[in-house]
Design a protein around this nucleic acid. Structure first.
Length: 889
RNA sequence: GCCCGGAUGGUGGAAUGGUAGACACGCAGGACUUAAAAUCCUGUGGCCAUAACUGGCUGUGCGGGUUCAAGUCCCGCUCCGGGUACCA
């Protein structure tokens, strides 16, 4: 019988749908549960590309396997549908984004269904559905009403915030300001990145290092705008320690650790000569205080203007002005050439009471640490560069741990910078009584920090790079904030009962050039009046796209609940997500934001776990071959033809160059999953996606590879669907052994997400079975079961041939019978000095001595013994024998 | 610059320190066919020897090292990919 995949796949997709095969079990008493989660997609107009099904197939195999293992499985899919493309389209055509979104979701859903992915569609969610974003707004209210208790390291309701007497006596306004200063969500003037092309503010995270917007590639500018911010840095420590119990790739944990950027050091107070103000700096190297020969203060620092002396005022003001006009791009661009001016003022180094000049320079950033530094040019490369340029003194205070005597001389003379360890020199002072000479870095840091603390001159301090999260966008197509700004300046949030606050209908979606959201045009929606007649305006910014994806995994648990965000009993049962797969592009932002929200919800008792995703895995990117001709013009991939290892344009015959690159329209190398499905079938598509290589690596799509797996499925189908090949007798020993080896291999590989080798194991089995010509019905059943998570349509079809009328999806996963795997004999590789020479077949139970006797007795051994003198024989039972010879000269 | 990956046949890739190249593509030869496609069978890292069976040398980016034994562990590089960027 021919393998008619189209017919088979349609039939089973229909069957699963009609029978609600993959409906999530309602019974919460099964102790075995498995929540298998995909990063839900943004439904773009282009439809699915082959990168999507990679992760989806992996989770699908895992979910199907777990069902067969007796687990209750939650495997949902939904749409992260707020976002710019639908809004851009609305601006151009006037089509409401919800229309565009609905069409795109329909396409995605159809494509996903056609891949035979076993999602429970009753759990489908859409972040743009008011019934969904109602709860996004609800969480925002929770964030607003939460403060972070440093002592308990825990978020708590603002109602539990103790107001200090000091504040209380200043009245209501001060009290309210005080709580606002503690809330996890706050509204403030912020110097923010603004993309003039998208007319939107961007989070720091969305601005690339070259100063361009990651979404559109255009240059961003700084703008001062009133914005909503979230105090994620409060959770920095918890976000770091949370990793300990997570089964995540180390690389992703590292990326998040870098992003959080914890650094330990000390804050040190410097007196300013002739003023009562104190200049506090943060340093990771308090041990180098004796080498601090000048200070640098950021132009934006509140003390900068104050400390500047009359004679330097003009110069400093000009510098501040210039720095404020510079975009951060310029600031980074000029990184190679540092700039700065002298303030005219000196600070007093607390360790030796020497006066050191205070400079103003923009290589010190206002947002990190205290916005001012002590400069130790001898032991910090940036300070060294600056000092060299402006002829500032460089005082080496550390005899470096170097072997090169010339280098050591240069360092001690202050002609070269040394940032590693060494022994302190010139690091004592009789007036202040501190002395760290002779110590190394670790001991020096400890001693100086303790001394600073004892003299009340400073304290140990931990700093983080992580900044407050800019949480508003000047856009229409996002969640509206449940916020009203009153004419008297008060800000109130809607009551939970007033949610959702729906997006109003608009005629024009274009945002204002000054940073006004298009919602400012929705007059009727915008203006509100309270009972007392006080007038107010709704917040016109909307939430960023991250908002909806921060918590969607929670709504999947109970998506139709209209009274609660979810039923707590269900949350307790299903959380945390046992497996979460998606692209590494979300390694930092989505995962960090999402963990942050989750921890807040945990602190408030809304969720039962501290972390949302137990096991995370990143699929690699799928690249594709692209072709260009001699002049560099791209040629569509399907026009390229290979002959003798060279590539030619099928139509013009000109020679082409093959490239491997990301799929893109401009390279004309996009592979459309629909084409693959119609040519080879969904099962082949699934199998190829998994067979290409390890899930986590970047790999190129090659149509020829699909042929390989499709051939395997065809052979399997033809072999197992032919009654003549299925016999009623006892199973052949070799087949039985291979079958059970295959079960074990496939099971272990699925658990480890090594799908490529699982597939190759199944290929090996089928090749053997075909060679043998027949197998028993039992073997056929077992093989069909282990194949079913990978190629579910085909497996269902064969399962029904084998006489079953129920779905294979819940058949128990076959057990490995160790009896069949036992070996009587082992073919020992015999090597001489590590080089394999020949093999001897011996019983597995044979003792070492006996093995050695057998090896020595072998005719072929004599030949090799003649090349040297026998010195040792290593026998690793059932593995290898290595004869060690001393070679004759 | 710093952090993290990676480098294995013509290609994608396999290998708990123990038989390198599983499986698949491609290629070559053969069967079926009027022919092609499809399908099936055989071979396939490189080099050398042999009529052949077979035998030898060599081989996992480069250079060292540890070990009876290294693709795998250690040290030093090169190149490629990802992240990050004056973070004090």
């Amino acid at each position: 019988m021919d393998y008619n995949f189209t017919e088979i796949e349609e039939r089973w997709q229909k069957f699963w749908e009609e029978n609600k095969t993959f409906k999530t079990p309602e019974d919460l008493t099964n102790p075995k549960k498995c929540y298998v989660l995909d990063m839900f997609p943004y439904p773009s107009g282009a439809g699915l590309h082959v990168g999507h099904p990679e992760g989806y197939t992996a989770t699908d195999i895992y979910a199907r396997y777990k069902r067969m293992k007796g687990f209750n499985v939650l495997h949902p899919m939904g749409w992260d549908a707020f976002g710019l493309p639908a809004e851009q389209y609305a601006i151009q055509t006037g089509t409401h984004p919800s229309v565009t979104t609905k069409n795109n979701c329909d396409t995605f859903r159809r494509q996903i269904r056609e891949l035979g992915l076993s999602y429970d569609w009753e759990k489908e969610i859409n972040t743009t559905d008011p019934e969904y974003y109602k709860w996004t707004q609800w969480i925002f209210i929770k964030l607003y009403n939460t403060w972070f208790d440093e002592k308990l390291q825990k978020g708590r309701p603002v109602s539990e915030l103790a107001i200090p007497e000091e504040i209380r006596k200043h009245g209501k306004k001060e009290i309210s300001n005080y709580s606002d200063s503690k809330r996890l969500a706050y509204y403030d003037n912020a110097l923010v990145w603004w993309c003039p092309s998208c007319r939107i503010v961007c989070a720091n995270e969305e601005v690339l290092y070259d100063g361009s917007h990651e979404k559109c590639g255009n240059r961003v500018e700084k703008k001062n705008l009133k914005q909503w911010m979230l105090r994620i840095p409060h959770y920095a420590e918890r976000l770091l320690t949370g990793f300990d119990k997570l089964d995540w790739p180390e690389g992703i944990k590292d990326m998040q650790r870098n992003w959080i950027g914890r650094s330990t050091g000390a804050e040190v107070d410097f007196r300013i000569d002739g003023m009562k103000e104190i200049l506090t700096v943060f340093t990771t190297r308090p041990d180098t205080l004796f080498g601090a020969t000048y200070m640098v203060i950021a132009p934006e620092h509140p003390l900068t203007k104050l400390i500047t002396t009359e004679g330097h005022k003009r110069e400093v003001d000009n510098y501040i002005e210039a720095a404020s006009l510079k975009s951060d791009l310029d600031r980074t661009d000029l990184a190679k050439e540092k700039t700065g001016v002298f303030s005219g003022r000196h600070a007093i180094n607390p360790v030796n009471l020497r006066k050191i000049p205070i400079w103003v320079a923009d290589y010190v950033l206002p947002g990190y640490g205290t916005g001012a530094i002590m400069a130790v040019p001898a032991h910090d490369t940036r300070d060294f560069e600056f000092a060299e340029k402006f002829n500032l003194p460089i005082a080496c205070i550390q005899d470096p741990d170097v072997t090169d005597p010339d280098q050591r001389k240069r360092i001690i003379a202050g002609r070269e910078c040394w940032t590693e360890d060494g022994r302190y020199i010139n690091s004592s002072d009789s007036t202040t009584g501190i002395d760290i000479n002779g110590l190394n870095k670790e001991a020096g840091i400890a001693k100086i920090t303790a001394w600073l603390e004892s003299k009340n001159l400073g304290k140990a301090k931990i700093n983080y790079k992580l900044r407050d999260w800019l949480f508003s966008r000047q856009r229409y197509w996002g969640e509206p904030f449940p916020v009203i700004h009153w004419e008297d300046g008060e800000i109130t949030l809607l009551d939970e009962s007033e949610l959702p606050l729906e997006l109003p209908a608009l005629e024009k979606y274009l945002p204002g050039e000054s940073g006004e959201s298009p919602l400012a045009n929705a007059t009727e929606w915008l203006n509100v009046t309270d009972r007392t007649g006080r007038k107010g305006r709704r917040e016109t910014n909307t939430m960023p796209q991250w908002a909806g994806s921060c918590w969607y995994y929670l709504r999947f648990i109970d998506p139709r609940n209209d009274r609660q965000i979810f039923d707590p009993a269900k949350e307790k049962y299903w959380m945390p997500a046992d497996l979460y797969i998606g692209g590494a592009e979300h390694a930092v932002l989505h995962l960090l934001y999402s963990r942050f929200w989750h921890k807040v919800l945990y602190d408030l008792g809304i969720v039962s776990t501290d972390e949302p995703y137990t096991r995370l895995y990143n699929q690699g990117m799928i690249l594709a071959f692209a072709y260009e001709n001699a002049s560099g013009a791209k040629v569509a991939a399907d026009l390229a033809e290979e002959r003798d290892g060279k590539f030619y344009n099928r139509e013009t015959g000109e020679e082409l160059r093959q490239l491997v690159a990301k799929m893109s329209k401009s390279l004309k190398n996009v592979v459309n999953p629909d084409d693959v499905v119609s040519r080879y079938g969904a099962d082949s598509m699934r199998l190829y996606e998994m067979f290409m290589g390890p899930l986590d690596i970047t790999k190129p799509w090659d149509d020829k590879g699909v042929k390989g797996v499709s051939g395997f499925l065809g052979r399997t189908f033809r072999f197992l669907s032919n009654q003549a090949n299925i016999h009623p007798g006892d199973e052949d020993g070799e087949i039985l052994k291979a079958l059970h080896q295959t079960i074990r291999k496939v099971e272990g590989d699925i658990e480890n997400l090594h799908f490529n080798t699982a597939i190759s194991a199944m290929m090996i089995f089928i090749n053997l079975a075909i060679k043998k010509g027949r197998i028993t019905k039992d073997s056929a059943r077992i093989f069909t079961k282990i194949l079913s998570p990978f190629a579910p349509h085909l497996a269902e079809e064969i399962w029904s041939f084998l006489g079953h009328n129920k779905t294979i999806s819940f058949e128990p996963w076959p057990e490995v019978n160790e009896e069949y795997l036992k070996e009587e004999i082992f073919e020992y590789p015999i090597s001489f000095n590590g080089k394999l020479r020949f093999r001897i077949t011996l019983p597995v139970s044979m003792e070492k001595d006996e093995i050695i006797r057998n090896v020595l007795a072998d005719e072929r051994t004599k030949k090799w013994l003649a090349t040297g003198t026998l010195s040792n024989i290593i026998v690793v039972p059932n593995r290898i024998v290595n004869v060690v010879l001393k070679t004759n000269p």
